[in-house]
């Protein structure tokens, strides 16, 4: 049981996929202008990551080693199509706003990385939990970045005005490069607290 707890907690802090392993940056930065989009993206990644880890883990003894990348990509692509169709049906506006980035979950390194590193060698239930926890670690950073970008860039949260009218929105925060700088600062803070993670 201690092992399972480790599986769930590790990806959220010590082995966070974004700030420590530097995976899945591609999609994480473009969708963080608004908190709403970031939350939908986070939930989609959690769902895709958990389900595809579960399926690959169930199939792990039947996949030939040489073609495993293609098999994994097909499983992940199927899950992403399901999520995309679901969003198109129930949250069309958000789906339009996220545009190609939902499709790009297929090549999100976190999903592939967890399948390669964990799901191929473990039983289905731990794999499912590992996938979900990694998706959650990713979502957490996404929401933190989106919180600051929406608050400083538009003075709103989830579209509701929070800061008084006297605050002039900082347009730089909405532009793409600021997401990278903000993420750099989050990594800085994380490593300042946890000295073990510092690079020599």
């Amino acid at each position: 049981m201690a092992n399972l707890k480790e599986t769930i907690l590790n990806p959220i802090l010590k082995g966070n996929p974004i700030t420590v392993l530097v995976l899945g940056i591609c999609s994480s930065l473009a969708v963080t202008v608004q908190l709403k989009g970031a939350c939908v993206m986070a939930l989609s990644v959690i769902a895709v990551c958990g389900l595809s880890s579960l399926i690959v883990s169930l199939l792990r003894n039947t996949i030939p080693n040489r073609v495993r990348i293609i098999v994994q990509l097909v499983v992940v692509a199927l899950m992403v199509i399901l999520v995309d169709q679901f969003l198109k049906a129930y949250a069309y506006a958000v789906d339009k706003q996220l545009s190609v980035y939902i499709g790009l979950i297929i090549t999100n390194c976190i999903v592939m990385g967890r399948i390669e590193a964990f799901a191929l060698g473990n039983k289905p239930i731990p794999s499912l939990l590992d996938g979900l926890a990694n998706g959650f670690g990713y979502g957490l950073i996404l929401v933190v970045v989106a919180f600051f970008r929406e608050l400083l860039g538009s003075g709103t949260l989830f579209g509701f005005q929070v800061l008084p009218d006297a605050y002039i929105p900082n347009n730089l925060v909405i532009l793409p490069p600021f997401a990278l700088i903000l993420l750099g600062c989050i990594i800085w803070a994380h490593r300042a607290f946890d000295k073990e993670l510092q690079e020599k």
Partner: peptide
């Protein structure tokens, strides 16, 4: 700074390069 070494400073560098590209 020790905590910024490696990944952190790389992100900030890419951010600055991105601003130049804008």
């Amino acid at each position: 700074p020790a905590a910024l070494k490696g990944t952190g400073i790389t992100f900030i560098t890419v951010g600055l390069m991105g601003m130049a590209f804008m």
